[in-house]
């Protein structure tokens, strides 16, 4: 097991460097000049050039990249072009809020999606199953920014129950969480349904039924346990779309997370913050997927056995 984890950790390094390289190249190619952004549109050519020299922007690209990577390993993402604050501070201030929102959305999705999937599978072709299927299809066809607006219309404007924007307490979390989590709930419902159906058609389930085990125990103790394994992997993959989706949800609800920070920084041409934000999000995604894979290996004795030798 330790060998497996170590191997996976080693594989992380080239991927992370690759991500940094791609993001770095993308940002180098984007319009707008860092020195120009700092000094504003009225700055003289000479002042801009001096600043470029000072910031090392006139150095060859490879040297700039090396410097940037070296900085990241010291947790230095450079400074915001807008207010000179270290990018890391800005990201660290926003990151917890995004993590809270994403985790809440995942939790909601699991709480809604998994039971719905189980019921669908145990009552295949019933009305409940049809309802669950339709819910799932509609949920992942609905853009989360539109759902956000509908939720605001219904619960904030119409009923006046919940606050619309910002994050000053638990009640502020409810609407963004629903907006972000609904799509994933649909994905989980479908995944659970199909993997439950598959698990329930296995020979060992027939054996359990044949020896007279109650239906409840068959479904919840045996089938579900096996059916949940693929769902663990999906949680990791869904996280990518949640972190991406948070960009939109956060913008609609003015949620002080990393998504909103990035969108604002893109508008302000604050490349350093955007660059750091993308790298941070990708890292978070990669690390969580690694954790998910390790959990998966723990949950599935077959994978564990392979690395025990």
């Amino acid at each position: 097991m330790v060998r497996y984890i170590l191997k996976r950790l080693l594989m992380l390094i080239p991927i992370l460097i690759g991500v940094i390289l791609i993001v770095f190249i993308l940002m180098q190619l984007s319009p707008g000049d860092a020195a120009q952004t700092i000094l504003g549109p009225q700055a003289s050519e000479e002042a801009i050039n001096n600043l470029r020299e000072e910031l090392g922007l006139n150095d060859p690209m490879l040297i700039q990249f090396g410097r940037y990577v070296a900085g990241i390993f010291r947790l230095d993402f450079g400074e915001s072009l807008k207010d000179g604050q270290p990018v890391l501070n800005k990201l660290m201030a926003a990151m917890p809020n995004t993590i809270i929102l994403t985790l809440a959305a995942i939790a909601l999705a699991l709480l809604v999606g998994v039971p719905l999937g189980i019921v669908s599978a145990t009552h295949q072709y019933s009305i409940l199953d049809k309802f669950a299927t339709i819910f799932a299809l509609i949920s992942f066809s609905t853009p989360n920014f539109w759902l956000s607006i509908l939720l605001i219309l219904a619960f904030a404007v119409g009923l006046g129950w919940l606050p619309v924007s910002g994050f000053y307490g638990a009640e502020y979390l409810i609407l963004p969480m629903i907006a972000l989590g609904t799509q994933t709930a649909g994905v989980f419902a479908r995944m659970t349904r199909s993997s439950m159906l598959e698990a329930m058609s296995q020979d060992y389930i027939r054996t359990l039924r044949a020896k007279g085990l109650g239906e409840r125990a068959v479904v919840y103790k045996h089938a579900l346990k096996n059916a949940l394994i693929p769902i663990i992997t999906v949680i990791g993959l869904q996280l990518g779309s949640l972190l991406g989706g948070a960009l939109l949800t956060e913008t609609v609800f003015s949620w002080p997370g990393i998504g909103r920070l990035m969108i604002e920084s893109i508008r302000a041409k604050d490349t350093n913050v955007v660059q750091g934000g993308v790298i941070m999000t990708a890292t978070l995604f990669i690390v969580i997927n690694l954790i998910v894979d390790i959990l998966y290996a723990y949950a599935d004795p077959r994978v564990k056995a392979e690395y025990k030798k």
Partner: peptide
Amino acid sequence: MRFMDILLAVPSILLAIAIVNILG
């Protein structure tokens, strides 16, 4: 495939935003 892994590590909407930001 490792290159594809790298692309997959960046949430796709984020990647699209970064690209559209460059291209206009």
